[in-house]
Each structure stands twice: as C-alpha cells, then as structure tokens.
Amino acid sequence: MNTVPTPSEAPERVPWYAVALTKRWLTYLLLTAIFAGTCIALSTWQFNRREEAQQEISRVLSNYEASPITLSEALPTLDTFEPDDKWIPVTVTGTYLSEDQFIVRSRPREQQAGVEVLTPLLTEQGNVFVINRGWLPVLPDGTENYTLPAPPSGEVTVIARLKAGEPAIPGREAAGNQLATIELPLIAERIGYPTYTGAYGVLDSETPPPIENPPLAAKKPSLDEGAHLSYAYQWIMFGLLAFIALAWAIRNELRIRNAETDEGKARELKRQQKRAAQPTEEDIEDALLDQASR
C-alpha cells in the first residue's frame, strides 16, 4: 500500500524568554551590569572632578587678584588653613633664611623638567613662613648640585599667595635640601623654628627686589575646567551601549533559532525582496553613465 508523504511541520516559534532567561545569557547580563556599574562609577568620578575644577576656578577668580591682607589675618594659627582661602594674597615682613633653602624635585613646566625653590621667611613675630620663590630648570649635565639664587638680604616685605601644604609621598624621601613634596611639617622639623604648617606662599613680589636673577615666577592658574564633562557623558554612553549590544545579541540568536518557523521564513523572504528591489552598485554606475552620455 502506497502512502503519500506529508510535509514536515514547521518548528514552533521560540519565545524570547526561552533564550534570554537561560543560564548563559543571564551570566552575560550580570557581566553587562557590572560593566555598566563601573561606567557609572567612572562617570560620577568625572563629574566630581569637574566640580572640583569649577571650585578651583571660582577661587582663582575671587581670590587671585584680591587686595593683600596680613599673614596673621589669613592664618591666625600656624597649623590651620581654609581651602576657600587658596590664592589669597598676603603681605608679610621678615628676613629670609637663605642658608636653609630647599628645592622640590619633579616639578615640570611646559614639558620641561625642573625644581621649585623654597625659602623660609623668619617673620617679625618669630615664626617661619615658607615662600615658594619660583622654578628652575634641571641642570644641563643632569647633576643635582644647584646654585640657588640668593634672596634679598635683610628685612624684606613679601606679597605671596596662599596654598595648602602637600602630603608626603610613600617611598619618596627627602635627601639633603631636596624634597619630594612641599611637606611643611618636615621643613619645620629641619629648620627648628615655629613654622606655618597649614599653608605656604607662592611669591608675587619682594621689596626690596633681589640682586640676583630670581627663579622663574609661578604662572597664573588656568581657568580651563578640562574635558571632564564630555568624559562623564562618554562613560554613561558606554554603559548604555553595553545593554544595547546585549539586547542585539539576544535578538540575533532568537532570529537564528526561529529562522525555520513560518514567521522566520516570511521575514527572510521579505528581507530578500527588499534587498532585490534596491539598485546594485553596477545599476547605479550604469545609470550615471547613461546620464553622462545624453
């Protein structure tokens, strides 16, 4: 008895959750969430850095060109300093301790290696206020035997802008009169005078002026907040793109698994018809040649 073969039935359509909720794709989802969380953390960090940069710009705009006040007004005690007082000009009179000058290593300027010169100023009150007198390039022969420019001798009146002292860097120690950072407590220990350890001064002017050419004066701080905002948005976009890429990958696997269903075949046929209706590069080239020949 002859039997007529019946066409095989099309497979049933696979629902999206049968793919997305498998162990493999849930693991990918977890990794994507971790990546996106890292992106959000990095974005927040860039937003915070932008806020810090804006605060610094605000201090420069409000303090840098202000009228000088006395050191005792700005720093009523030796070990305190308010961050909002950064860049305020102060005036102080005293005598430089030229025999106790220090240099701070690793201070590049305009892509040139150099050092900064610190000179303690013994004030009329008997306290020491550290003055950053400026920048010197590294020696051409690579040695560290700097001959530091002599500061003005005798009584001098200094106008300087306040900056907070710097912390020590682990693993980098002072050698002789060379410091790794502007670590004010260490300088106080070295010179043996009561010393302002909350802040130091970036030199603006000295009266009388020095006889020798002084170190190169510090530059005015930049008012550019940097690219932190664009970086923050980029990290947010990276996090969103990770989820978009995950959704696309799940959709692509779902399409492949449903390719033999009636719905999948109809979708592929429609895609082929649409592709066939579009002119090829050869068709476009022939049309351009026909137009040119008319």
Results as ranks from 00 to 15, higher is better:
161 R>D: 08
286 D>G: 08
291 Q>L: 15
191 I>V: 12
38 T>M: 14
217 A>F: 14
141 D>P: 03
199 A>E: 05
166 E>L: 09
62 S>I: 11
169 I>T: 15
127 N>M: 04
133 R>Q: 07
241 L>V: 07
34 I>Q: 07
85 D>I: 02
146 Y>T: 01
66 A>Y: 00
111 Q>H: 00
279 P>Y: 08
4 V>G: 02
274 K>T: 08
47 F>H: 13
59 R>L: 02
191 I>G: 06
250 I>S: 00
265 K>F: 01
162 L>T: 09
68 P>G: 05
86 K>C: 01
63 N>G: 06
152 P>V: 06
12 E>T: 04
106 S>K: 09
151 P>I: 11
184 L>E: 10
138 V>R: 14
26 L>W: 00
68 P>C: 02
160 A>G: 08
195 T>K: 09
14 V>T: 10
77 T>L: 12
132 N>G: 04
72 S>F: 13
34 I>D: 00
133 R>S: 02
7 P>Q: 15
104 V>F: 14
163 K>L: 13
33 A>S: 04
18 A>Y: 01
114 G>M: 03
87 W>G: 05
241 L>Q: 03
32 T>F: 00
38 T>D: 08
271 R>C: 12
159 I>K: 13
167 P>C: 08
161 R>W: 09
235 W>T: 05
206 E>G: 05
251 R>T: 03
10 A>D: 10
194 P>I: 11
233 Y>F: 15
31 L>E: 07
139 L>M: 04
50 R>N: 15
115 V>R: 03
48 N>Q: 14
247 A>M: 09
131 I>C: 04
265 K>G: 03
178 Q>P: 10
69 I>L: 10
65 E>Q: 10
219 K>T: 12
21 L>H: 02
6 T>Y: 03
283 D>E: 11
97 L>M: 08
276 A>K: 10
287 A>Y: 07
138 V>T: 14
55 Q>M: 11
30 L>A: 12
135 W>L: 06
228 H>W: 13
166 E>Y: 07
59 R>K: 12
249 A>G: 02
149 P>D: 08
11 P>Q: 08
241 L>T: 03
28 Y>A: 13
157 T>H: 04
204 D>L: 14
164 A>H: 06
91 T>A: 11
127 N>K: 03
126 G>P: 09
28 Y>G: 09
224 D>F: 15
123 T>L: 01
221 P>N: 05
213 N>C: 11
15 P>K: 00
109 R>C: 00
163 K>Y: 11
161 R>N: 09
118 L>S: 05
63 N>M: 08
59 R>P: 00
36 A>R: 00
167 P>S: 13
202 V>G: 06
4 V>I: 15
154 G>H: 10
157 T>C: 02
51 E>Y: 07
112 Q>Y: 00
246 L>A: 01
6 T>R: 12
116 E>Q: 12
208 P>G: 10
228 H>K: 06
264 G>T: 08
53 A>D: 05
177 N>C: 03
169 I>V: 15
224 D>P: 04
142 G>C: 12
159 I>Q: 14
141 D>Q: 03
70 T>G: 11
51 E>M: 08
23 K>M: 02
6 T>Q: 11
135 W>P: 02
43 S>L: 05
75 L>H: 01
269 L>H: 15
77 T>G: 10
78 L>Y: 13
